[in-house]
Amino acid sequence: MEFLELLINALIAGILLGGFFAALSIGLSICFGLLDAVNIAHPTIIVGAAFCTFLLNDLLGIDPIVAGLILTPVFFLFGMGIYSLYYQFFERQSAEALRGLAFFFGLLFIAEVVMIMIFGVDHRLVSAPYIGESFTAVVTGMTFSVPYRLLAAFVIAGLMTLGISYYLSSSYFGRATSAVHQDMMALSLMGADPVMIKRIAFALGLATCGLAGALMIIVIPIEPAVGRFFIGNVFAIVVLGGLGSIPGTLVGALILGIAESLVSTFFGPSWAPAVSFGILLGVLAFKPTGLFGTGDTR
């Protein structure tokens, strides 16, 4: 009975965590999966957004979710800028893709150091009515407990990821983005500017960081280096779901969320970081195209 209670609680927490992970990964899925821009700074940019949320909440008393919505267009513009740089120095010169990786790694490091210089290494929190309390229910003698903060993050993450997923699969822009992935030439023939489409898609990927950052600080206390702990998660999710597949990313996020939650519950939270790495290596070893991937991995 006690085991069952633990298990069900772990599964519920895992699904909620999966929703949060989906919010962290969907932007990377666009940049990496659809545009081949391997933005390893993605989680760190999310932490940046989390600190912006902290400032808006701490100084102006704005609700973190509202703050995330305010930040989204700001990060969209930021993404336009970063992509312009990336395009100028790497894509246009068809430089080795790996040099682009070093570029994003440099960005990751700079962002982290700047945050340490501004905010120090202390953990920061935000306050909102739904943070701190838990929803508790007793069913057939078992106690189930769901923190409202996870619930809030799950709802917002779900709305955002499903919205983007729907938009990319049904709009002209979404189809153009997958065309950019498959055939640049055909797209120019259709009269669309592939570079512009890529820039907007990349910016959309970074725009998700705005809201994802707000969700991050709702879910956990943050410090500048916390992004590193999510690098394994977001890449494991995108690779597990399959490059180029946004729905795959959502499924991958749920799987990883549940897996991490189970490991935390039954083996202790200190083992959680090993889960994503295990999944990442497992997928690369046995099915590198992921669950729903179409791209080639060689």
């Binding site: 893709a97 990786l101 590193r228 990442l280």
Partner: peptide, 19 residues
């Protein structure tokens, strides 16, 4: 696999070994 996969896998090594 493509070079990026090696890079991505190495990103997580330090965190996992630290765990």
């Amino acid at each position: 696999l493509k070079g990026v996969y090696f890079a991505i896998a190495t990103l997580a090594i330090a965190i996992v070994l630290e765990t």
